[in-house]
């Protein structure tokens, strides 16, 4: 298992991948991708028990579902750098005939992806289904999912949240990316959601906070705790407080980079702040 420094180096490289991918096609969602880089790296490199090759059914391994599919750049980068497909393929992001579609899809057979996502609010239901299949199969591995905080405005989530506790889906760890921002501005301005912790608790979930969601040690600690809480009759929610655009100073503390790519000059500044560690694709 990689040590903390190795995870940090990989995260820096993933940030470079994200920035270069969206810059090349002048489209995509760098803000949320950068905010979740540490989470994805920690999940795939440490937390999850994965097989080294991809099988759709994922029997005998932990599975991850990305519900807020627009942060595909971080997903693709971490999947490639975890060995699911060649890092060279990151070059094809959002291009015609690419397997790296704007939003993740199984349609093109990209290894590592088990469901299409992008139309928001559907991922938790899918994750619950996969968790139920694991139970039927007598497979003790876990299901992980990630959702945006703004995404919780979609009503289907609350159907899923209600179901998961009522039916004791306790092999599920759903993480909410609490970056407080969405396309039109701060989540509190668009549609304030009050206490997400209290809502999950009221629905019967166990809730764990990761206050420093861009700190690898904090993520390791929080997710390890989350794992330890599974199997107790309740689904587990992780509230991951992140900074959108993390690691690039001018992309932080704003929602402006939710769905906007940097220009040449901005890319250069951003890459200078994130020097190459493992080699660019």
């Amino acid at each position: 298992m990689p040590n903390i420094q190795e995870l940090k180096d990989l995260t820096t490289q993933v940030r470079r991948d994200i920035l270069r991918m969206v810059h090349k096609v002048n489209s995509g969602h760098p803000g949320g991708s950068l905010g979740c880089a540490e989470f994805f790296v920690t999940l795939y490199q440490d937390i999850m028990d994965r097989k080294d090759h991809f099988e759709m059914d994922g029997i005998g391994e932990d599975l991850f579902f990305l519900s807020n599919g627009h942060i595909s750049p971080v997903y693709y980068s971490v999947l490639a750098r975890s060995g699911y497909f060649s890092v060279d393929e990151l070059n094809t992001f959002r291009l015609i005939d690419s397997r790296l579609q704007g939003h993740p899809t199984t349609h093109e057979g990209l290894e590592g992806i088990r469901i299409a996502s992008g139309s928001l609010g559907q991922g938790m239901s899918v994750a619950i289904g996969a968790a139920e299949a694991k139970k039927l199969n007598g497979d003790s591995h876990l299901i992980y999912s990630l959702h945006g905080d703004g995404e919780l405005q979609e009503g289907q989530n609350w159907e899923a949240i209600m179901y998961a506790s009522a039916k004791k889906v306790d092999n599920l760890i759903s993480t909410i990316d609490l970056n407080g921002k969405q396309i039109d501005g701060a989540t509190d301005d668009v549609l304030p959601m009050g206490s997400i912790r209290q809502k999950f608790e009221a629905f019967g979930w166990l809730v764990i906070d990761i206050e420093e969601g861009n700190n690898i040690e904090a993520i390791l600690k929080g997710m390890t705790e989350a794992k330890s809480k599974t199997g107790n009759g309740k689904p587990v929610c992780v509230l991951l407080k992140t900074e959108m655009g993390n690691g690039v100073d001018f992309m932080m503390h704003t929602h402006a980079w939710h769905g906007k790519a940097p220009n040449d000059e901005q890319l250069e500044i951003a890459l200078t702040q994130n020097p190459e560690t493992l080699g660019d694709y």
């Binding site: 759709m56 059914d57 994922g58 029997i59 599975l63 579902f65 088990r114 469901i115 609010g121 559907q122 991922g123 938790m124 239901s125 899918v126 994750a127 619950i128 289904g129 996969a130 968790a131 139920e132 299949a133 694991k134 039927l136 199969n137 497979d139 009503g155 289907q156 159907e159 899923a160 209600m162 179901y163 009522a166 039916k167």
Partner: peptide
């Protein structure tokens, strides 16, 4: 699986159940 009056969730759970061979 009785999902209650929540058809959207039902379709999503069904999709997830296929992952694992159901």
């Amino acid at each position: 699986y009785q999902v209650g009056i929540a058809e959207a969730n039902m379709i999503g759970i069904a999709a997830g159940l296929t992952i694992g061979g159901k």
